[in-house]
Amino acid sequence: MNIKNRLRQVRESFGLNQMQFVEKMQTSQSTISALEKGDRALNAEVVIRICDLFNLNTEWLLRGTGPMHKGDPKTGDASLISQPQKTQHTENMKSKKEMTGDASPVVESQREIMELFKKNMELQERLMAVMQENADLRVQAERDATRIRELERENEALKGERSE
């Protein structure tokens, strides 16, 4: 399954049509349509917004690996995050500071991954621009070489006429 299909799967799994999805994402319908058709690539900001809004695993959205939702590492069951435990013993309770400390490395890792993803996209765009420039320069070099050969032939012809 590719990224455009995973994006559609997210929308449909939450029972949203494109317009409802557009409202949640705060973007245009044409953007969502283009993303789902694969006519437009997801950028890092959109990936972060989708993962945050729908509690998705970034790795699943980008590559299709791992669980779909953040939560249970085996099943990706997001309900484990959103539903509090009914009974909680005092020895199992953590302070907000401790809980934030536990999640902080994960969040930081995801942010780093997204930054690397963003840098990768920028580098790919630069590479494509350099490759296009290289192709243009090769075409120009071939034209120049052809013109040089033509001028050399003309020069030889003129030398031949002078010597006669």
Rank of each mutant, 00 (worst) to 15 (best):
H69S: 05
R162P: 00
K4T: 02
E152N: 05
E108I: 11
V10Q: 01
L7Q: 04
S82D: 07
K119M: 06
L61E: 00
F117V: 00
M19R: 14
I113E: 12
N2W: 02
V22E: 04
E164L: 14
E150V: 01
A41N: 11
D77Q: 04
S28V: 02
R153C: 13
L80C: 08
Q18K: 14
I48R: 11
T58Q: 10
G64R: 11
G66C: 10
T27I: 05
I81T: 09
R162I: 11
L62A: 05
Q29V: 14
K24F: 04
L137P: 02
R49M: 03
E23N: 11
T27P: 04
C51H: 00
A141C: 10
T100R: 01
L56C: 05
T146Y: 06
L62M: 10
A157N: 15
C51L: 00
E142H: 04
N5Y: 12
S104H: 09
T27Y: 02
E152H: 03
V107I: 14
T87W: 10
T31F: 04
E59M: 08
K118S: 09
K37Y: 09
R138G: 10
G15I: 10
A103H: 09
E12R: 11
E125F: 07
Q20K: 15
R126I: 13
L137A: 10
M93D: 02
L35K: 07
V22S: 08
R6C: 04
V22T: 11
L137G: 03
V139D: 15
R149S: 04
A34Q: 09
A103M: 09
K94A: 00
K118Q: 04
N155P: 01
R49Q: 12
R147N: 07
K4P: 00
S30R: 13
Q26K: 15
R63L: 12
S82A: 05
N120L: 05
L42V: 01
E115W: 04
K4G: 00
N92C: 14
R149C: 03
E98R: 10
N55T: 11
S30F: 07
K24Y: 07
M128W: 11
K94D: 00
R147G: 03
G15R: 13
E115D: 13
D52H: 07
T100N: 01
Q124R: 07
I113N: 15
F54H: 03
Q88D: 03
K159R: 14
E36K: 06
A78L: 07
R11G: 02
R126G: 15
R147Y: 06
E59R: 11
L56Y: 08
E125L: 02
V106H: 09
T31Y: 06
Q18E: 05
E91W: 14
L53S: 10
V107K: 06
M93P: 02
T146H: 12
S109Q: 13
L56F: 06
Q110C: 13
E152V: 05
H89D: 14
R126H: 13
S79Q: 12
S95H: 03
